[in-house]
Amino acid sequence: MTKLSKRSMLKTLAATALATACALAPVVPAAAADKVTVGALRFTSHAASFVAFERGYFADEGLEVEFKFFQAAQPMAVAIASGDVDFGVTAISGGLINLAQKGAIKVVGGALQEEPGVDGQMILASRAAFDAGLTSPATLAGKSFGITQTGSSFHYMIHKIADKEGIPRSEITLRPLQKVGAVIGALKTGQIDAWTIVPHIAKAIAAGPEIEPIGMIADYIPDYQVTTVFTSTANASDKPDLVKRFLTAFAKGAADFNAALVDKTASAQEAEDMVRLIHKYVYADRPFEKAAPSIRNGAMRINEGARLNLTSVTDQLEWFQSENLVPASVTIDMLVDASFVETD
């Protein structure tokens, strides 16, 4: 009796809801979608999310996505910790690890990765330093190196370079300049000697006379997991299904992106469409003709299936600990929830 009446009541309700929904907007699907907020930076490295949104992959998974744009990765990590944003993509930084240690966030998948054969991050030298003999990373000893902040990915990269070249870390002077723009300015005017940066920026500024490329990051940190997908610990433990659906859609976007711009297996028309799609989000303030080369130049592999290189992440965590930037007590399990994607 009760069962029946409940069911009939539901039916009536659903019918009314459907009727109203149809009357208001005929295309709304019957099942209400889960609303998620995705934090993003206007960088090509965030393209997988943009593709998944534009091509309806999120909607296919029943996700109603709203983007929230940030100027830097740091506030995005804090926004996820506070629950204002559900998912984000960013490099592994000291801030991220410390938030993970406090139980606020978890890395759930991989995004951007260095890969041999694909143009990756470049090591650059200022004109003055280059002319004075800084023609290869091997001669970085005694030079100054620009970073945004202590504990940023730039900080990690220069130390990995120093370690591989056998230069004591302390022999390279670090210059924290807070913003990418400030580092570019300092490098152009020769106030710092060297820097590393993602390819689309590197290629653009190395085209001028003030800056010379002197090496590739991929040679020093092979398979470097540059950025990762992360979410709040609450999402990872309480809504694993939601996380899975997000990662599925994200991976579809990544696959399209790789095919069009990284592996270039898709048609030229397909690549052009992809650049146009990304241009809606990245360099939107520039005309398409100017933005297109930057977008193409910036294409680095986004992990298939949001696969995560756990070895690289572990190496990064160990480096942060070796520099006392994060507590020694942090384990890889505190940082990563590896249950969602394949790892290696």
């Binding site: 000291g94 991220l96 410390n98 504990g151 994060v326």
Partner: peptide, 8 residues
């Protein structure tokens, strides 16, 4: 500033 960027 470092403490802020590390969220320490």
């Amino acid at each position: 500033l470092m403490a802020g960027s590390l969220f320490a």
